[in-house]
């Protein structure tokens, strides 16, 4: 479904991604783990068109999407729940979700996705008219994921969905990610919480300073002593 081939990204003189290649197949949960500054978020920014690739290609369902503007990429069926949530603070929950469906025009369709998102996150339904900036961290995370689902993406990109959340909320969010996957959305997940990520993922890539250091199916990576030592706390 998504194929990244030899992707290079620079921030001025900083070489953030040094020729990474990865693949996400339809129906999978793939996770990208690695420490701070390894290039995880940059990878997602490049996929969504927020940063320009200096070389390499990104193809989605056979189409070259490298360096397309973000709004075209969303229309093709890729949507990102960004790091730090980035909800629209002064807009209501409902308006935030409506914006998530910006590329959709069919009213019945939109109503149906609203229902689906409210069923996944009943808390959001209770807060429909509340400004997003007044929600708790966990609720904002739900809003960010729900908003990303509103475009009915074929591929959902999740950037650090567990960041800053209490442990019971982390469990809840990961449960929800699994049910989104079961409902037929392909997921590329970025996490610092590598244990949790590997536990729900089919396959994983490990990024180290802009390069892919390891890759394989999630279960065997979770057993790999090198990865246990570096990312899973021994």
């Amino acid at each position: 479904m998504l194929k990244i081939d030899n992707l290079n990204v620079f921030y001025g003189p900083i070489h953030a991604l040094k020729g990474i290649s990865l693949e996400v197949n339809e129906g999978e949960i793939v996770t990208l783990i690695g420490s701070n500054g390894a290039g995880k978020s940059t990878t997602l920014s490049a996929i969504t068109g927020l940063v320009k690739a200096s070389s390499g290609t990104i193809t989605f369902n056979g189409k070259n999407i490298t360096n397309l503007p973000p709004y075209k990429i969303v229309k093709m069926g890729i949507s990102l729940s960004p790091e730090g949530r980035e909800v629209f603070p002064a807009l209501t929950v409902e308006e935030n979700l409506t914006l998530g469906a910006y590329t959709r025009n069919n009213h019945n369709d939109i109503r149906e996705i609203f229902e689906r998102v409210y069923n996944l996150f009943p808390r959001l339904r209770e807060r429909i008219k509340q400004a997003a900036g007044t929600l708790s961290g966990g609720e904002q995370q739900m809003l960010a994921i729900g908003r990303a689902l509103m475009s009915k993406p074929k591929l959902l990109l999740l950037d650090e969905p567990s960041m800053g959340l209490a442990p019971n909320l982390v469990l809840l969010i990961f449960d929800l990610i699994e049910s989104i996957s079961k409902q037929g959305t392909t997921i590329l997940l970025i996490e610092q919480n590598a244990n949790m990520a590997l536990s729900i993922a089919d396959r994983a890539y490990v990024l180290e300073t802009g390069r892919i250091a390891f890759s394989g199916d999630a279960a065997s990576l979770a057993d790999d002593p090198r990865i246990r030592k570096a990312y899973l706390g021994g």
Partner: peptide, 21 residues
């Protein structure tokens, strides 16, 4: 108008919604 208000608050997130900023 909603897209204008979204762009006002967060250009990056507006891009991610599929808005042609």
């Amino acid at each position: 108008g909603l897209a204008m208000r979204a762009t006002e608050q967060n250009v990056k997130a507006a891009n991610l919604m599929g808005i042609n900023v």
